[in-house]
């Protein structure tokens, strides 16, 4: 039985200063396995669509323009993504990667959450196509 059993902690805290991390001014290094914004590499992709099928959040869409010519556009919705990493595991060709450092994703513009990967010309075709159907 004692009164104020945590007094040692209190004194220690006074001497050492707060343990709070001052976020925007000080950043901790994210661990190597941290999952942030998905990246896609066209080189090995076969357009099998397993990533799209397995994504639990429907964040991925692989648009096939021409399978033989390997013209794929990878549409990725960052705001839908739950960063579970299943797509990376599902991909047999290692086209997908979740890097650890691109995690400050907050934005005021909804459009920023829609990311397209692929050849610039192909992306433009997909974007135009969308614009046509949307109108």
């Amino acid at each position: 039985m004692k009164l104020g059993g945590m007094w040692r902690d209190a004194i220690k805290a006074l001497v050492q200063g707060p343990s709070t991390q001052k976020y925007p001014f000080e950043r901790l290094k994210t661990p190597e396995r941290f999952r942030s914004k998905l990246t896609w590499d066209l080189t090995n992709c076969t357009g099998c669509g397993l990533c799209m099928k397995d994504c639990p959040a429907n964040a991925i869409e692989v648009v096939t323009l021409d399978r033989k010519a390997k013209r794929f556009v990878f549409r990725y919705r960052v705001d839908h993504c739950t960063f579970c990493g299943q797509c990376v595991e599902s991909c047999n060709k290692n086209c997908l990667e979740l890097p650890e450092d691109d995690w400050e994703l907050a934005t005021t513009n909804r459009q920023d959450f829609e990311v397209y990967y692929g050849n610039e010309a192909d992306v433009q075709i997909v974007l135009d196509g969308e614009a046509e159907t949307g109108a």
């Binding site: 945590m6 902690d9 343990s19 661990p31 190597e32 396995r33 941290f34 999952r35 739950t82 960063f83 579970c84 990493g85 299943q86 595991e89 979740l98 650890e100």
Partner: peptide
């Protein structure tokens, strides 16, 4: 204090699995 020290184990989990909650360690 207990929440401060909880950070230790959360950092460990983040290091192992890549996330602090909803670790997605399983497949």
């Amino acid at each position: 204090y207990s929440w401060r020290d909880r950070e230790t184990v959360m950092n460990l989990l983040e290091g192992i699995t890549g996330n602090r909650v909803n670790y997605s360690a399983n497949i």
